[in-house]
Simulated scan of single mutants.
Amino acid sequence: MNTKDFYYDLPEELIAQDPLLNRSSSRLMLLDKETGEIEHKHFYDILDYLHPGDCLVLNETKVIPARLYGVKEDTGAQVEVLLLHRKDKEHWECLVKPGKKLKPGARISFGDGRLKAEIVDILEEGNRLIRFEFSGIFEEVLDQLGEMPLPPYITHKLEDRTRYNTVYAKEEGSAAAPTAGLHWTKEQLEQCEAKGIEILRITLHVGLGTFRPVKMEEVEKHHMHSEYYSVSQEVAEKIEACKKRGGRVICTGTTSCRALESAARESGKIEAKSGWTDIFIYPGFSFKVMDALITNFHLPESTLLMLVSALSSREKILHAYEEAVKEKYRFFSFGDAMFIH
Results as ranks from 00 to 15, higher is better:
L58R: 11
N59A: 02
N59M: 03
T61V: 03
K62E: 13
V63F: 01
V63P: 10
P65G: 08
P65A: 08
L68M: 12
Y69R: 14
Y69W: 09
G70L: 10
V71I: 13
K72C: 08
D74N: 14
G76H: 07
G76Q: 00
G76F: 10
G76C: 07
G76E: 06
A77E: 10
Q78S: 12
V79W: 05
V79K: 09
V79F: 06
E80S: 12
E80L: 02
E80M: 07
V81S: 03
V81N: 05
L83Q: 08
L83Y: 07
L83W: 01
L84K: 06
H85W: 11
H85P: 00
H85E: 15
K87T: 08
D88G: 06
H91L: 15
W92Y: 14
C94K: 06
L95K: 11
L95V: 14
V96D: 09
V96M: 05
V96R: 12
K97G: 02
P98Y: 11
P98M: 11
G99H: 07
L102W: 09
P104E: 14
P104D: 13
A106E: 14
A106T: 15
A106Y: 00
R107I: 00
R107C: 12
S109G: 09
R114K: 15
L115R: 12
L115Y: 11
L115S: 11
K116L: 07
A117C: 13
A117P: 01
E118Y: 04
I119S: 10
V120P: 02
V120L: 15
V120T: 10
D121E: 15
I122R: 14
I122T: 14
G126T: 05
R128E: 06
I130Q: 03
R131G: 01
F132Q: 03
E133H: 12
S135E: 09
G136R: 00
F138Y: 06
E140S: 05
L142G: 00
L142Q: 07
Q144H: 04
Q144P: 00
L145T: 03
L145C: 07
L145W: 02
G146T: 00
G146H: 05
E147S: 15
M148D: 04
P149L: 00
P149Q: 05
L150Q: 02
L150H: 04
P151F: 02
P152A: 09
Y153P: 05
Y153A: 02
H156M: 09
H156L: 01
H156W: 04
H156T: 11
L158M: 11
R161S: 10
R161I: 08
R161K: 14
T166M: 12
T166K: 09
V167G: 03
Y168T: 01
A169R: 12
A169T: 02
K170A: 13
E172A: 15
A176L: 09
A176H: 04
A177G: 06
P178Q: 13
P178R: 13
T179W: 13
A180F: 11
H183P: 00
H183A: 09
W184T: 04
W184S: 08
K186M: 08
E187K: 15
E187H: 05
E187T: 11
E187Q: 12
L189H: 01
Q191F: 03
Q191K: 14
Q191E: 15
